[in-house]
Amino acid sequence: MLWIAIRMLTGDRQKFYGLLFGIAFSTLLITQQLTIFVNLVERGASGVYNVPTADVWVMDAVSRTTDVNFAMPSTALDKVRGVSGVEWAVPHLRGSAAVRTQEGDLEGVNIIGVDDATLIGLPKNMVEGRTDVLAQPDSVIIDDVGVSNLFEDGQSPIGERLELNDQRAIIRGVADSIPSFTSQVVLYTKYSQALRYVPGTRNRMSFVLVGAADGVSPSALAAHITERTGLRARTRDEFAQDGVDFIIQNTGIPINFGITVVLGFIVGVAIVGLTFSLFIRDNIKQFGALKAIGVTNRKIAGMVGVQASMVGLIGYGLGVLGTVGFINAFSANPTFKGFYIPWQIPLISLAAMILIIVLTGWIALRGVMKTEPAAVFR
């Protein structure tokens, strides 16, 4: 019986391919949009992920993310260093400025000042050059995404001279970093140099990066720093999650992507439901003939279930492969750098496809169950 069901399904190629297209397109839309959504909101934590050595981030009480922060006085660094359990603490500056290139173009950039002595605050890996180039005068390191935004394709940024706040900056290295949510150009330099590049205010230090002593957990240390100094201290994971939550709560991204996912589900139900119903209607005499020779409704339901499952699994596989192909095709684009498919997303898509198949199969099955064996003789 099951083989007969498969032959009936593949015998009508137009409807068979229509069912596959509906499932595949719906899976592709849901999986791709959820993948882009997750990777975009995770960009809110990129500033934290690019500093892998810091166990705890200390900031003003009103600061929320690496990009939404309120500067602290320099005395905050001494307060943090005086807390027991702190192995080391260094200043960290994050600000914005406008850079003028040699061609006269104006570009907004993020300036990140790292500790002069230890260079804590730099990304872990370099694409070109070494981190010790910051020891040279007026040196900056640009992120690899910024290279594509600031320079033409194929042009090396090494040695290029920029103008930052009427100060000279020379690019001497390229860092391999996770792009920010806005994919803006990022320039890394020493903390003392960053003070010259960022427009001056009374307080300049954005964060204090802290390393926990041996045997001290970051969460316990963060709570101790907050208690002793009155500043806001967050562990690396907590502060990364703060960046993600800030984007979710303060942008329209979740609503927009959610609407697209829902539309993908509705399109899948509409296309598959309509096509499957037409397939059942065109084969109603065959189902009637099977009933006439003694096939029970239970076996008929099993046949329809096999047909729906076969279409669903093949269409789902094609949709997931389409998403993988999309991510790989745009992997070289700086906007999509580091994009990946979390393992939970294919499972969500699979659950959506099962629901689509169950709904459309149940609707189509109702017509088969009502068919009388005599229908074949009419």
Rank of each mutant, 00 (worst) to 15 (best):
A169F: 06
G200M: 13
E160Q: 15
Y191E: 07
P157T: 14
V198M: 09
R172N: 08
V174T: 08
I141F: 01
S192R: 09
R161W: 05
A175C: 09
N165W: 02
M205Y: 00
N165H: 06
E160N: 12
S177R: 14
V140W: 02
D166V: 06
I170M: 06
I171W: 09
Q167Y: 05
V186F: 01
E160M: 11
I178K: 14
R204A: 08
I158Y: 07
Q184S: 15
D176L: 13
E163W: 04
S177W: 10
F151A: 09
P199Y: 02
D143R: 02
A169M: 06
R202I: 11
R161N: 13
S148V: 10
Q155F: 05
Q167V: 01
I158H: 00
L187I: 06
L187H: 05
Y188L: 12
T201P: 01
P157F: 01
I171P: 02
S177V: 04
E152L: 06
S180K: 03
R196N: 12
V140E: 04
D153T: 13
V145R: 12
L187A: 06
V208S: 03
Q155I: 14
L187E: 07
L187M: 11
E152T: 10
T182R: 13
S148E: 13
S183T: 14
S139D: 05
Y188P: 06
G173R: 01
Q167F: 02
R172E: 02
D144F: 08
S180I: 11
D153K: 15
L209R: 03
A194H: 11
D176E: 15
L187W: 08
I141A: 07
L164M: 13
F181T: 07
Q167H: 15
V174S: 01
E160C: 09
G159P: 12
P199S: 05
I141L: 05
V147Y: 01
N149C: 03
P157R: 08
N203D: 15
R202G: 14
R196Q: 12
G146A: 11
D138E: 15
I141E: 00
N165I: 01
L195E: 15
V198D: 08
E163L: 14
V174G: 04
G146K: 04
S139L: 10
